[in-house]
Amino acid sequence: MSKLDTKERIILAASNLFWTYGIRNVKMDDIANELSISKKTIYQFFKDKNEIVTISVKSLLEKERMFIEEKIEQSVDAMDELFISIEYFKKFFRTLNPSLLTDLENHYPEAWEVYLYYKESCFKYSLISSMKRGIREGIFRDDFDIEIMARMRMQQVQFAFDSKVFPLQDFDFFEIQIQFIEHFVLGISTIKGFERIQAYRESQKKKT
C-alpha cells in the first residue's frame, strides 16, 4: 500500500470518528486502533492531531461544496434546489455529533478558520445565489435584504450547536436544524413558494 493510500485512510478514519464521537473525545490511539496501525505510523504523516483535524475539516467541507454545486446544476428551480439540499442535510445532521463545531471553535483554531472560510466564501455565496434565483422565479419574496437573510441563516446553523441554549439532554440536534430550515424558508417564500413547501410536506408525510 502506498504512502498516499495510508495518509488518505488515516484522514478518512479520523473524520468518521470525529463525526461520530466529537473531536475532543477521539484520541490518536483511537485512530490507530481503528486502522490497526501504530501511532508511530500516524506521526510519519502528520505532526499532531491538530493537523489531522484541520485536513479532515477541509476535506469534509470541500465535499459539501462539490455536492451543493452538483445539485444546483441538477435542480429545475430554486425550490427544487432547496428540497434536494434539505434531504441531503437530513442525512448530514442525523449522523453528526453536536459537539463537533463547538470543539472546533474552542480548541482547534486552524480548523475553525477553515470552517469560517468555507462558511463565508462558499456556503453563504451559494445561499445568496439560491435566493436571487428564487426571487427571479417568483418563489421567494423580493422585499427582503438578501445579505441580512444569508447571514442570519449561516448563524442559525451555528447557533444550533450551542449547548447552553439547546442542552443535548433536552433537544434533538437534528430537529433543531430542520426547524430552523423550515422557519427560514417559510419566512422568505411567496404564496407560490408556500404552496410548493406544503406539497413537499405532504409528500414527506406519505413517505413516513
Rank of each mutant, 00 (worst) to 15 (best):
T20H: 13
F46L: 06
Q74T: 15
I55C: 08
I72E: 11
L35P: 04
E69G: 12
V53Y: 08
D29R: 11
S56Y: 03
S75N: 06
S59D: 13
I52C: 06
I52P: 00
F67K: 02
N16G: 04
S59Q: 12
V53P: 06
E51G: 07
D29T: 15
I68D: 07
V26A: 09
K47E: 10
Y43Q: 04
E64Q: 13
K49S: 06
W19G: 00
G22T: 02
F18C: 00
M28R: 03
I31D: 01
S38Q: 10
Q74H: 11
E62H: 09
N33F: 10
F45N: 11
E69Q: 13
Y43C: 08
I37L: 10
F45D: 07
Y21F: 05
L35D: 00
V53A: 04
Y21W: 00
Y21E: 05
N25C: 11
Y43N: 07
N16T: 13
F67I: 07
E70N: 12
V26L: 13
S36W: 09
N50E: 15
Y43E: 04
E62W: 09
K27G: 08
K63D: 02
Y21D: 03
Q44S: 14
I42D: 03
A78W: 04
F46C: 08
I23F: 07
A78F: 01
E70H: 11
E70A: 13
M79N: 15
